[in-house]
Structure formats: structure tokens, C-alpha cells
């Protein structure tokens, strides 16, 4: 016991440092979003503003068509998620469970797309969207992400781990392939699906680059673009308003995490018991 004590202390200290490092910018953002403009300029910075200025949020929200942005963000992220599920689940099932002509080649092709960042191909995609007349619409934000090589890869791995006998039992139970996917594969891959959904949600909720390129009018823009606009107020940046805007962006993510967290833990604990 005695000899373990210092290690525990080092462990604890290490964890505290990590937590502080990750948490400090966040706390700073939260506190700034409640400050007066004057308070944001003081040095050393104050951690607790004298009074909490809720109107920063109202100002931020009212400085542009934020309801529109918010709605667009929700439609885009969920649209992407739904389409991705519709494509990656059957694809992963086929790659994991079937042998067909060229299966390795096509899987390799899928994996290669993992290595190409979207910034590299935005021009051809832009031209494509333009020729379909979809520029400056939500479709231009959704369709290019309708599938995910990463998702296919992740899900294929977890589909591969489902014992073959389970599928055979299901076939003897007269289950169709669709039913096998729905009732056996998806429930067993639940932790992976939730993890992927979170990953996809965060990526597209926070995405700045793609909407910037594909859209020009407010009617098709999303929250990150709206918030970046808060910087363009005259007479210097109002940091408190900007941070309030960032809070509006972040809070939905926190809420989703809060609910998903219990699901993730439950899902992982569940598969752990054999």
C-alpha cells in the first residue's frame, strides 16, 4: 500500500493537468460569453464576471437569421446521418459477409478514399453540384457526404465479429437478409453505430469549410458560418458576443453527448458480457 501511494499521487496530478489543459479554453469561453465587453479586455483575465449577462446570447442570436442557420444545421447533420446509415450498413454487411467478384478491389477503393481530404476534391464536387443546379442549397451540403468510407470500415470490422452461426440460426429461422441486418447485425453493432453517429454529427455540425464553399446566401448557410459572421461587426471584435455565439454552437453537442454517453456505456458494457 505504502509504495503505491506516490504512484497514485503522480497519476492524480497527471490527470488534473490533462483535465485543466482541456477544460481551460472551454471554461474561458463559457465565462467570456457572460462578460461585458470591458471585462473581456482586462488583464489578468477575470474568471467570474461581476454579473452574468444573458443578453449576450440574445444579441448574438438576433444579430442574424440564427433560427435559419440552426434549422439548416439540424437538417444537414441529420440528413447526412440518415443517408450515411442507409449506405454504410448494407455496404459494410456486404463487405463483411459476402464474397463476390472484385470484393477486395472495391473494398480497397473504398479505403483509398479515406486518404483524400475533402479540401482536395472540393473543386470537382463543386462543379458537379453546379451542373446539377444544387449550389447554394442544402443538398450541396448533404449529398457529398451521403456515404462514409470510415463508417464502412468501422462497421465492417464489427459485422465481421458476429459469429457465422448466429446468421445460420437466423436463416434457419426463415429470416430475410434485411431482417438479419435489422434484428441481428445492427443491435450487435450498436456501440459502433453510436460512436460513428457522434463522430459524423460533430464533424458536420462544426463544419465550416464546406458550407463556406458551397453556399452564398443565408438561406442555405449553417451555424458555424453564422457565428463567424459575428466577428465582422464594426469597431473591433465583440468577444463576449462571439463567445455567446460559440456557446450556441456547442450546447447542442453537449446535450447529444449527455444522452449518448449513457447509451455508449450501456452498449459497451453489454457486449463485454459474453
Amino acid at each position: 500500500m505504502k509504495s503505491r501511494l506516490p504512484i497514485n499521487i503522480i497519476n492524480g496530478a497527471g490527470m488534473i493537468i490533462v483535465v485543466v489543459l482541456f477544460l481551460m479554453p472551454f471554461v474561458w469561453m463559457v465565462s467570456t460569453s457572460f462578460k461585458t465587453l470591458g471585462e473581456t479586455m482586462t488583464f489578468p483575465p477575470v474568471w467570474f464576471p461581476d454579473q452574468f449577462l444573458w443578453e449576450n446570447f440574445i444579441k448574438a442570436w438576433n444579430s442574424g437569421p440564427f433560427l435559419r442557420y440552426f434549422f439548416n444545421s439540424v437538417v444537414v447533420t441529420f440528413g447526412i446521418l440518415v443517408l450515411q446509415f442507409c449506405t454504410i450498413i448494407p455496404a459494410a454487411y456486404a463487405f463483411a459477409r459476402y464474397t463476390f467478384k472484385g470484393d477486395r478491389f472495391f473494398f480497397g477503393l473504398t479505403m483509398i478514399t479515406l486518404m483524400i481530404p475533402p479540401q482536395l476534391i472540393f473543386l470537382p464536387v463543386y462543379l458537379q453540384m453546379s451542373s446539377w443546379g444544387l449550389l447554394d442549397s442544402l443538398w450541396a451540403l448533404i449529398l457529398p457526404f451521403a456515404s462514409s468510407a470510415f463508417g464502412i470500415f468501422l462497421l465492417r470490422q464489427s459485422f465481421k465479429q458476429v459469429p457465422e452461426e448466429l446468421l445460420e440460426a437466423a436463416r434457419l429461422d426463415e429470416a430475410s437478409e434485411g431482417k438479419i441486418i435489422l434484428k441481428i447485425m445492427i443491435p450487435m453493432a450498436k456501440p459502433v453505430l453510436i460512436t460513428f453517429a457522434l463522430f459524423s454529427f460533430i464533424t458536420h455540425w462544426n463544419d465550416y469549410f464546406w458550407p463556406l464553399v458551397m453556399t452564398t446566401s443565408d438561406s442555405a448557410r449553417t451555424l458555424p458560418l453564422g457565428i463567424s459572421k459575428l466577428r465582422e461587426v464594426e469597431g473591433g471584435v465583440a468577444w463576449n458576443i462571439l463567445m455567446a455565439g460559440n456557446m450556441i454552437l456547442v450546447i447542442p453537442i453537449l446535450i447529444v453527448f449527455f444522452f449518448a454517453q449513457r447509451q455508449i456505456i450501456r452498449a459497451f458494457v453489454y457486449t463485454g458480457v459474453k
Binding site: 459469429p163 452461426e165 445460420e168 440460426a169 437466423a170 443491435p187 450487435m188
Partner: peptide, 10 residues
């Protein structure tokens, strides 16, 4: 089946 092959999520 030898190792039962019960559906674990049901």
C-alpha cells in the same frame, strides 16, 4: 448448435 448460437441482443 454446439454453442447454442442464441441471439444475444434478444
Amino acid at each position: 448448435f454446439q454453442n447454442y448460437a442464441l441471439y444475444p441482443t434478444m
